[in-house]
Simulated scan of single mutants.
Amino acid sequence: MAGGFAVTKEPGTDRFAQRFHEAGFSVLAFDYRHLGESGGEPRQVARVGEQLADWRAAIEYAGTLPEVDPGKIAIWAFSLSGGYIFPVAARNPQLAAAIAQTPNADGPAAARNAARHQKPSTMLHFTGRAILDALGSLIGRPPRLVPLVAEPGTVALLTTPDAQRTNEALNPGNQYPDWLQLVAARSALRVTLYRPGRHAPQVKVPLLVVVADQDQSALAAPSIAAAGRAPHAELIRVPGGHYAPFLEQHEPVVEAELAFLRQHLLNQPATTPRQTGAAGEAPVVQLRRGA
Rank of each mutant, 00 (worst) to 15 (best):
A6K: 03
E10D: 14
P11C: 10
T13A: 11
F16W: 03
F20A: 03
F20K: 01
H21V: 05
G24D: 12
R33L: 09
Q44Y: 13
R47N: 13
V48F: 09
E50V: 11
D54I: 03
W55I: 02
Y61P: 08
A62W: 08
G63R: 12
G63D: 10
T64P: 13
F78E: 00
F78V: 07
S79F: 03
S81D: 07
G82I: 01
R91F: 02
R91H: 12
Q94L: 10
A96N: 08
I99L: 03
A100E: 00
Q101I: 01
A105C: 13
G107Q: 05
R112A: 06
H117A: 08
S121Y: 11
S121I: 14
T127H: 08
A130Q: 05
D133V: 12
A134W: 06
L135H: 12
S137K: 10
G140C: 15
R144Q: 14
L145M: 12
V146W: 01
L148H: 02
D162Y: 07
D162R: 07
R165W: 08
T166Y: 06
A169R: 05
A169Y: 04
L170Q: 00
Q175L: 15
Q175R: 15
P177H: 08
D178T: 15
W179A: 05
Q181P: 08
S187G: 04
T192E: 11
L193N: 03
P196V: 02
A200K: 01
V209C: 01
V211N: 00
D215Y: 05
Q216S: 04
A218S: 15
L219T: 02
A221C: 04
P222C: 08
S223T: 05
A226T: 04
H232Y: 14
A233V: 03
G240T: 05
Y243G: 01
P245S: 09
P245C: 02
L247V: 13
E248W: 09
Q249N: 11
H250A: 09
F260A: 04
L261M: 15
L266C: 12
N267E: 15
P269I: 15
A270G: 07
A282K: 05
R288V: 14
R288C: 08
R288Q: 14
R289D: 10
G290Q: 14
A291Q: 15
